[in-house]
Simulated scan of single mutants.
Amino acid sequence: MSAESSSKLNKLLRDQPAGVVLCSAWLVDNGYSNDLQKRYKNSQWFESVGTGALIRFGDQVDYLGAVYALQTQLGLSIHPGGKTALALQGKSHYLELSPKHAQLFGDQGEHLPLWFKKRDWGLSVKCALTNFLPPELGLIELSHKQFKVKVSDPARAVMECLYLAPKSQSLTEVFELMEGLNNLRPASVQKLLEACKSIKVKRLFLYMADKAKHDWVNYLNLDNVDLGSGKRSIVADGVYVAKYQITVPKALEALA
């Protein structure tokens, strides 16, 4: 390997943390040609994890190392959300030692690269692409291994759970998650509620926060929150909650 190639390799190894995916297109944009990448692979500095993606040779890369690449190299808004984001922040009541599922969210019009979808990350990864919330709102940076990824903050994560409910997410479980969020910042919740496009999500969020008797609810200004008009039946054969004009599961309404 030439001195120039070796110097560029050292810079790449120094600047990029271990445990992450490196996208070939991003490498090309930063001066690492496809030919140079091939030489690095032949010299066993890097190995392919699918078309268009590399990792350090022998490195252990999980799905968060791939999400890092999606966010920092491809400029996507895809991030861990819902129960996954809460679990990563230690705010999930069901914390699994080795989770079997990961839920990602991204903006409408984005897509996961083929290398991400084809790779076995050791768990099932689902991705919901939706614009019910702005892609930049309600995200925080979380440290993982030697790098950071953006994940949903607790308020956004609960809203994402409610977006998936009741079809893909139990409403009673979401309420149990909501019960633990007694220290949300009203200003942050206010911004999310004002920006949220889903009437269902907003009504359920406020209903659950009310039911959990969280103090921060008292500091919200609902005059600026569009809660729509008319009744919403979230489930069939449920209980009607007049204050929020929603029909919720009997088991949820029965919870103290």
Rank of each mutant, 00 (worst) to 15 (best):
S5K: 12
L13D: 00
D15Q: 13
D15I: 06
Q16G: 01
C23S: 13
A25G: 13
S33V: 13
S33K: 04
S33R: 01
N34Q: 11
R39D: 08
V49P: 04
F57M: 10
L64E: 01
V67I: 15
S77K: 06
A87Q: 04
L88V: 04
L88F: 08
Q89E: 02
L95S: 02
L97H: 12
S98P: 00
P99W: 06
L104M: 13
L112F: 09
D120R: 05
S124L: 11
K126Y: 02
L129E: 00
L133V: 12
L133A: 12
P134N: 02
P134Y: 00
P135E: 01
S143Q: 10
S143L: 00
Q146D: 10
A165E: 07
E173P: 11
V174T: 14
N183R: 03
L184K: 06
A187N: 02
L192H: 07
C196S: 14
R203W: 02
F205I: 05
Y207G: 11
Y207C: 12
A209C: 14
D210Q: 12
A212D: 11
D215V: 15
L227Y: 05
G228H: 05
K231D: 10
A236Y: 00
A242W: 00
Y244E: 09
T247N: 11
P249A: 06
A254D: 09
